[in-house]
Computed example of a mutant assay.
Amino acid sequence: MREPSTEQLIALQTSCDACFGTPAVWPVVARAYREPQRHYHTLVHIGELLTSLAPFRTDPLWPAIELAVWGHDAVYATHLPDYAENEARSAAWLVHLVSEQCPAAWRHAHAAHVSLATNVILATKQHRVPESLANDPRLRRVAQLFLDADLAILAAPAQRLIEYDRDIAREWAQDPDAPAEAFRDGRYRALLGLRAHAPLFHSNEFAALEPLAHANLDVLIRRYALPRE
């Protein structure tokens, strides 16, 4: 499991405390993202998302974006059928966490942000802006920015892309160099699904990543397609 540096951990904890208005949340978050089956969906991923989204901290709805960052992979099962419920359970996890750990005044001030964050988390299942948010430009932008940042790993440099793909295999208890046929098939189909998104990135700020992400997806698709040729 990848772990941030000590300096990065301090920064993450500081951000978490500020986001939720209490230091009580950080231990719960850290425990969730340090589960032993995780290799990509860890605190390192949270840090990368916060860095990618840092330019948008002045957005009026930034609290909702940051809440979605902390909650979107809080529940991450890597076996079927529970895998299909990760997004719904992560959204419910965030609501429960806020209810149990955040001060009443914070909950009152951020009720709308929590609601928006849960809708964004649910949208990560298909990585498409849901109709419930699409008609309001402010809400649509929140969803677009978060979903785009979550997929930005697909436009990573070659070495980081390889690390990401190998970590996904490890999360499914696979040898990255010799994954089982069932995993290869599932990964192949998932990558094809992403490649079919048109566009892959929805915001102007992330649109420039599209060509590299497509090229990277093609590389990964060819890797998992090899046995079929």
Rank of each mutant, 00 (worst) to 15 (best):
L161P: 00
A182E: 06
L151E: 09
D177S: 03
D165R: 00
R189L: 12
L161N: 00
D175L: 05
R184S: 11
D177R: 03
F183P: 00
R166S: 13
A182W: 04
A190Q: 15
L161C: 02
P176S: 13
D177A: 05
E171W: 04
D175R: 09
D167Q: 03
R160K: 14
D177P: 00
L154I: 08
P157H: 04
D175V: 06
G186H: 06
A169E: 08
P176Y: 03
R189E: 11
R189H: 05
F183M: 02
A182M: 10
R184N: 04
F183Q: 02
A156E: 02
D177T: 07
Y188C: 07
D150V: 14
A173N: 08
R170V: 02
D185Y: 10
I162R: 15
A178E: 13
R166G: 04
Y188I: 01
R160V: 14
P176T: 12
P157R: 10
Q174S: 13
Q159I: 13
Y164F: 15
P157W: 13
D175P: 01
R166H: 15
Q159F: 15
A169N: 03
P176W: 09
G186W: 11
A190M: 15
R184Q: 14
Q174E: 13
A156K: 07
Y188F: 10
A156V: 03
R184M: 09
L151P: 05
E171I: 13
A158P: 03
D175W: 10
R170P: 02
P157E: 15
D150F: 07
Y164W: 10
E171R: 06
D167K: 03
I168S: 07
A182G: 00
D167V: 01
A190C: 10
D177V: 06
Y164I: 00
A180L: 05
R187H: 07
E181Q: 12
D185I: 11
R189I: 09
Q159Y: 14
E163L: 13
D167H: 06
Y188A: 01
A155S: 10
W172N: 05
L151R: 14
P179N: 12
D150C: 14
G186V: 08
A156N: 08
A182V: 09
D165M: 09
G186K: 11
P179M: 12
I162G: 02
L161A: 06
F183W: 08
D185A: 12
R160H: 10
A182H: 06
D165P: 05
I153F: 12
Q174A: 06
R189F: 06
D167I: 03
A173G: 12
P176D: 07
A180K: 07
W172S: 11
E171K: 09
R166P: 09
Y164M: 10
Q159L: 15
A173S: 14
Y188P: 01
P176F: 04
